[in-house]
């Protein structure tokens, strides 16, 4: 039984780490600010959630689990608010998003210049 929980916790931590690294790569790779926000969203929701669930499986103390649940709920409630505030400030101050057809040209010229 203990071994099964250990393995499940390890799998959760592994998935969480993979999602976080993917989000980090996406933040460096995506072409403009608004698309980068989507990459940050991955690390903030399921990446953080999986790591915290993995930690919950490892602990026996009920207070520790309650605190981890609290951190998870805070992350899930706070981060959409912060990203919405950021996106709204950006679009009100005139930062134009790179949209579909223009974006192809930009990435091509960027990759050719490297």
């Amino acid at each position: 039984m203990d071994v099964a929980i250990e393995i499940m916790s390890a799998i959760c931590l592994l998935i969480g780490s993979f999602l976080c690294v993917s989000g980090g790569v996406g933040v460096l790779r995506f072409p403009d600010f608004y698309t980068r926000m989507h990459a940050v969203g991955v690390t903030d929701t399921l990446g953080a959630g999986m790591i915290l669930i993995g930690l919950m499986l490892q602990s026996q103390d009920i207070l520790v689990i309650a605190k981890l649940v609290m951190i998870l709920l805070m992350t899930l409630f706070i981060n959409p608010t912060a990203s919405h505030a950021l996106a709204k400030a950006a679009i009100h101050n005139g930062l134009k998003p790179v949209l579909d057809n223009k974006e192809r040209n930009n990435t091509e010229s960027e990759s050719s210049s490297r």
């Binding site: 608004y34 926000m37 989507h38 990459a39 969203g41 991955v42 929701t45 399921l46 899930l76 981060n79 959409p80 990203s83 919405h84 996106a87 709204k88 679009i91």
Partner: peptide, 9 residues
């Protein structure tokens, strides 16, 4: 906003 891939601006 919470679902990655869409953001309410």
């Amino acid at each position: 906003t919470l679902t990655p891939g869409t953001i309410a601006v």
